[in-house]
Design a protein around this nucleic acid. Structure first.
Lengths: 147, 147
DNA sequence: CTTTTTCTCCCACTTTTTCCCACAATTCTC
DNA sequence: GAGAATTGTGGGAAAAAGTGGGAGAAAAAG
């Protein structure tokens, strides 16, 4: 039921298909996912159930006549598409999302318990490097006890 | 037939016709839509049912003796036209609306669950760029827990 | 009333997507 | 360690989607 974790490197083929690592697939309740634009030029993948919960929350607090609402709607909700996991364990990533994330051949797939992320491998490495200092600061600010 | 989202690039032909992406068409209850001027120089498309609900709400909460009401009525309600989806999945976009949205050959079609939007591709890119900072602020302000 | 333009309906071509199978590499099992 | 199953990757063929254009009907213009 819960999505699993792990960092994997897989390759996007010429037809825009990407294998989801078997270890991550094992944690999925069904063979359908919703993929959309995430933050930091990566793609987010949710189970349909989780996506519905998220998009309803986003709509519940917004009106099409408010600028901020339209920004959220167009950047988060509009790009979302359902994708089916084929018999070989792959998903076909829609072209607009491939472009957004700048996916070339080498991709990184992350399992983050409640969602998956897909990155261009090079972009991921760059992002990790770029946020090195911020990571140090953010972790200092955490207040996690008993661990 | 709940999820009608996705971002697609299609081309407007010389006759003013634009294909609606099959993935979006699949979520429509009938082959008629109402198209009108939206915000930010795009076109909004609703199902007739949803359009009726919207225009009724607009009338119910406004008076023709108030300047603001007349603005809304003339900008949103007046330009609205019904369009039919032809056998090839296209709609003919009325010329006045094409001009309003500045549509040239390359268009972007957005599915946003409760409505569709049609943009000139270049204008859409420009709008996304222009609202970059606002998006960052708006998303930081979102309070979505547990996801 | 005739001519020209616009709009519709239909057909045809090209590209993209989908479905299926195959193969190599790795992992698992006994 | 050898055989069997699983995983990741590639590709071919069929179907679907997107695009362009022609012929006739309707509308507008002269």
């Amino acid at each position: 039921m819960e999505l699993v974790t792990g960092e994997f490197r897989n390759t996007l083929d010429d037809k825009g298909r990407l294998s989801l690592p078997a270890k991550l697939r094992a944690g999925l309740p069904e063979n359908v996912l919703v993929v959309t634009q995430g933050m930091d030029s990566c793609l987010w993948l949710f189970t349909p159930e989780r996506w519905n919960a998220l998009s309803e929350q986003l709509f519940a607090t917004t009106s099409l006549f408010h600028q901020q609402a339209r920004i959220i709607q167009r950047r988060i909700i509009a790009p979302a598409q359902e994708v089916e996991i084929d018999k070989a364990g792959r998903i076909a990533i829609p072209q607009s999302l491939r472009e957004y994330a700048g996916l070339s051949k080498d991709c990184v797939v992350l399992g983050i318990t409640k969602r998956l992320e897909i990155w261009d491998a090079e972009a991921y490495r760059a992002w990790i490097d770029a946020t090195e200092a911020e990571f140090a600061a953010a972790s200092e600010a955490l207040d996690i006890q008993n661990l």
